[in-house]
Design a protein around this nucleic acid. Structure first.
Lengths: 343, 343
DNA sequence: GAAAACGCTGAAAGCGGTTACAGATGAAAT
DNA sequence: ATTTCATCTGTAACCGCTTTCAGCGTTTTC
């Protein structure tokens, strides 16, 4: 099978030059005469030679590769982020090594080691679930940052060589809560499925907005969904159960569009008319928002902008520039069919 | 920054052994006495050493890495496939290098070269859009196959060192068409957005089923959507336009759940009741199917099984086993709310 | 016309591992 | 006591590429 792949030596021999010259041609570096360059390029074309990136990486001690860590690449939001990163990185001359870690801390640690051993030039942690409320669980990130710049999307962590780009989830959720209240919905159920860093921010936004509006929040009003992120049926079942257990709510503020969609499903099954009798606000403004019927009012946290900014920051860091350790973008509330218009 | 990272030499020095011994400990190979092993492991722990994967790769000429090529990692279906592959590969001791190529041939070629240069042990082409109807456009795949095993998901291409695992899209679409006809819908609009290999199969399935039912198909009945894969509004607008241009249809057979969802949107906007007056069948049985209201009847092509089979085949090939060059799984029609039940 | 500068090329060291081979040590067999 | 053998460890070559340094021929400079 692997019948001794073509190396720079084969090229040098065929072109009648030294390997150094071949290397120079490959890298477009320093002065090589047109004649020799042509000879080398021909030899390369003839043999179908592709340089060995290991060998190059060994010498240069960089593979021009950025590690991307995401819990679940099939999550709509994370997938989109990965896509943007891939695109941005490629445009900057970097490749990406993707690791889907799942949500267990142990696997996240293993993935970081793997990326380090592959000598990535930087690591992007996609999504807030990598940063834990308990500080000592975050040591693996600090360790990584000792070796390589670490970028956090939608999470925050202080530390040398750690850079954060995130959306202002606190404010967004505060705004969303206000919106529901302003359109006449006071018995709001907060529906979430992640205990992450940004999850905490969102929850605080909801609580504070309720408090500032003089509304009381009972703990049952915050529903945590434990199932998988795609289990829409399970989600609406939980709402159903919550309602039948006696808690009254006429609006759902969801930490995620999928949860919001399940709320729409629940409301329709109950025969409520949306948005007059029952309102819903989602989060992330994913494609689900426009797929839904009626379409979801949702928070757009400008993922593409976040990803661009994060990549730009990373490139700056790699170029030894001084870069801001923390950038926050505020989100927009996109009003669609699951909330009332106000004028 | 990069303050001379810890190497095997540092470990050997600290542990008072040779680098060969350190290497042996790292690879758990041959006989190393417990005492020395312990010394080495301690040194590793103390220094936080992680082996350099380039150097290892250079020596072994394998990085234990599989390249994954997908046009768009944020596409629901592709993202899911990527997720399964990642999972399966990791379980088999391989890592994955993801390249999102976009849909342009040129970029696909570039991505293949990149993977080859990174010395991946195999390449998985995720999705049928990598195989073109025009054979000479597929040369880049044959080239890749000269260097490394090539795996095709949902596409077929003859060639040395090329292995295909796919769903029987022809039969599935044939079945779906039959279902619509059997439930009383004969003026079916076929809605698609991809000219890929499996796209062709699907279309043939539709055409043949219609023909076998004695139904005529006019070309306007096959609508191609050119926009992006998430533009639900654009899709329903096209249906709207098609309808107002005079073509009558009371059912949509979509090559993709997103397209199907847009059909639901269109039908609802027209005030048709689903599924009695208007039926829809989607494809892929993605989460959109259960997100929709009413929920989509869709073809489940058992993506997870496909991915598992493909990975297993690849592992077999890498282990120099004889493997089937082509495996086909048939799909299931999952009946939900957008088609009538039949008894 | 000799010296200096320049453009191009090659030899060789090094990147950090793996591994074949040889050497050292100690126990078992004769 | 000597040989044999197994067990453990070290030396050094090698993987394919980049890059420094030196060398050489040619042109410029005074």
């Amino acid at each position: 099978m692997k019948e001794h792949s073509v190396t720079i030596y084969d090229i040098s021999e065929q072109a009648g030059v030294s390997i150094a010259t071949v290397s120079r041609v490959l890298n477009n570096s320093s002065n090589v005469s047109e004649a020799t360059k042509k000879k080398v390029l021909n030899a390369i074309k003839d043999t179908g030679y592709t340089p060995n990136a290991f060998a190059r990486g060994l010498g240069l001690n960089t593979m021009k590769t950025i590690g991307i860590l995401a819990a679940d690449s099939s999550d709509l939001y994370l997938a989109k982020a990965i896509y943007y990163f891939e695109e941005e990185l490629r445009a900057s001359g970097y490749d990406s090594l993707l690791c889907c870690t799942g949500y267990a801390l142990k696997d996240k640690k293993a993935a970081v080691d793997l990326l380090i051993s592959k000598k990535v030039d930087g690591i992007i942690f996609v999504g807030s679930n990598f940063v834990y409320p308990d500080a000592c669980d975050n040591k693996y990130i600090l360790n990584a940052a000792e070796k390589v710049p670490v970028m956090l999307l939608n999470a925050e962590l202080e530390g040398q060589n750690i850079y954060c780009v995130s959306s202002d989830d606190y404010k967004s959720m505060y705004k969303a809560t206000e919106e529901l209240i302003a359109t006449g919905f006071k018995d709001i159920l907060y529906f979430y499925n992640s205990l992450s860093y940004s999850g905490t921010l969102k929850e605080r936004g909801f609580r504070d907005a309720m408090k500032d509006a003089g509304l009381n929040v009972v703990e049952r009003q915050l529903q945590f969904f434990e199932g998988t992120r795609e289990d829409v049926h399970g989600m609406s079942a939980q709402l159903e159960k919550t309602a039948s257990s006696g808690l009254k709510f006429s609006a759902v503020l969801a930490a995620d569009d999928t949860l919001a969609l399940s709320a729409v499903k629940y409301a329709l099954s109950k025969g409520y008319s949306i948005p007059e009798e029952f309102s819903v606000i989602g989060y992330n403004n994913s494609m689900l928002a426009t797929c839904s019927n009626p379409e979801l009012t949702s928070i757009d946290n400008k993922l593409e902008t976040l990803c661009q900014k994060l990549t730009a920051t990373l490139m700056g860091v790699l170029g030894d520039e001084e870069m801001p350790k923390k950038t926050v973008f505020s989100g927009d509330l996109i009003v669609r069919g699951t909330t009332l218009r106000r004028d």
